[in-house]
Nucleic acid binder design. Sequence first.
DNA 1: ATTTTATGCGCAATCGTTTGTGCAAAAATT
DNA 2: AATTTTTGCACAAACGATTGCGCATAAAAT
Lengths: 355, 355
Amino acid sequence: MAITLEEIAKITGFSASTVSRVLTKQSKKYRISQVTEKVIIKKAKELGYRPNDLARGLRLKKTHLIGLMVPDISNPFFSYLTHIIQKKVYMNGYSLIVANTNEDINTEIEQLEIFRRKGIDGYIIMPVGTKYEHLADLIEHNKPLVLLDRNIDELNVNCVVVDNYRGSYEAIQYLINAGHKRIAIIQGLQNTYTNNERVLGYKNALADNGIKIDEELIVGNDFRRENGFISTKMLLKLSNPPTAIFTFSDLITLGTLHACMEEKINIPDSLSVVVFDDIDFAPFLVTPLTAVRQPREMMGEVAVKLLIDEIKNKSQERKKKIILEPKLIIRKSVRDMILGGNANHLNTTMEYHYD
Amino acid sequence: MAITLEEIAKITGFSASTVSRVLTKQSKKYRISQVTEKVIIKKAKELGYRPNDLARGLRLKKTHLIGLMVPDISNPFFSYLTHIIQKKVYMNGYSLIVANTNEDINTEIEQLEIFRRKGIDGYIIMPVGTKYEHLADLIEHNKPLVLLDRNIDELNVNCVVVDNYRGSYEAIQYLINAGHKRIAIIQGLQNTYTNNERVLGYKNALADNGIKIDEELIVGNDFRRENGFISTKMLLKLSNPPTAIFTFSDLITLGTLHACMEEKINIPDSLSVVVFDDIDFAPFLVTPLTAVRQPREMMGEVAVKLLIDEIKNKSQERKKKIILEPKLIIRKSVRDMILGGNANHLNTTMEYHYD
DNA sequence: ATTTTATGCGCAATCGTTTGTGCAAAAATT
DNA sequence: AATTTTTGCACAAACGATTGCGCATAAAAT
């Protein structure tokens, strides 16, 4: 159907190899005369020649395809990352294949299998959990790979994450400084890297401040909206409910807000809220939310850079672990339990920021 | 590197063709004995054979790749569509390549060119504008294509859009019913299908109600946040400012809210706002926004279904144009200029909805 | 016992590129 | 005029899979 090298060869009277060399700009290297070059280029344009990347990929073992695996593209945080990655990848001459694992390890494995059949040049993966044989196999076969947002310690691999532990710790510290003692968290999917780090940050912050950990206040099981909704309702119904909630994703936050609205809970008067992941709309909400903001564009950009480097540099002595810092954005969703009123005058040890 | 048919053939003592036939489940058709079948399958599993889709695609002229072109993935509306499409495409055994055109026609053309080299089986495109030679060429070459969100009338092509004209018309009618006469719109990118339809709905609604069109109140030039911000500021500074603003995208809305906050404009007391595209956070904003909601999942699902049908059915006598209906979600961002107070008791001719 | 039919599988071409090697003819050198 | 060098290009193999055709051998039919 489409026009091939062979056809151009027939028409111009040269061989396919000559046509190929001309069109891949290797005329000098292979001593093709300028006249021939002109003729071939002209004809190729005229016929609208378009190289077949399948054939090329087969021969060259390069597809200029990058595979991205994200847990949930409908989550604004991930979709924003996807956006950045798409942009950067394209700027480097690659195209992006995206897969959604839906936070399911089997889907992740299956999708990776499909990716590998396609001869993808490099992978950016935000792994679901802690199972990693499929990833280890990828590494063994020397496929360029960078882990994003979530690391797997056992793997010697390039990765870029944010300091989830610190983000969580500081958020909790901020709440404690505001006089809160009963602080709940609504977790995301357990046994993911991010979740583990955030839980740890929470626990250590409490411990360091001499507050006993109440397992009743640790709820939730995935990063979705419904989880936020249900978990918040449960927390509110506790005999001794929390005075503050720390949510682990923007989608969870949505559910929490929804639940608070239904229960006619005023934030921060009746309940303080701090959220992980800053949302574009956060400043315009009934109560502007105090949030841990992750450096999203930086994450995406660095991940792509690392990957492209690895693709080009095949050597890659040692893998790099990039850890980026989050930022606590203080707005108006935390109540000062000591002085009363809003706690947005309080500071943290973290670089902070108002807007 | 990876294990091939040929290697399995060598090891088992059969030919590559036999191995191929077994592994593609054509043993009966080609009368391969069950013993042979067993042996080959066992060995293939053992060696972790993974077919090379490049070679297969080259031979079969099928890649199981779907190409998606979106104007701006960071826009929640589009990222949600992307999510749905990814899911559906995967359920049908395809993988998704996504390109971001950035609302730039040249990028669209360039990206399409790249897609075509990759032997993609079908395309879902949300075109930037009204230039369509590259799309016409795609159709001429019988490549399965569906246009999404934005149609191009000149093209005989499958498409799924929502009735933007009606969505806009009804939103404006609602504002008029609430007593508004100076109604501004903040447009998106001009000469896109959606924008044209929405502007037309606006103008006709005004005309049908005997309100003169004031060009001063038609502002804006793209779907982004900055546009919303700047355009709102401009509108507010008019000597005779509007009493209501209709924004054309969720990102524009963000900018409008931002501007209103800076200018200390209360919604709806000082300014009524209706927005196109419903936002997850809309109910929780300082003022819950009255919005035209588009049936996003339906759009994505129908688009994929149409495409897969076209891929399978190559015949395709006549193309289908699917028009979905939007819904006006009435919340609290419109003031009743006649009775005062909120206009959320008012009805429209459209199917309406509270939440 | 011969012919026919069925069974089981391999050969080789093909998809569209790229690239190492080699061979004429032209140009330069002696 | 004979030899060497340079110029310009073609041949063919390779990448990994699929598939029409055909060829043995075995089983069935006569």
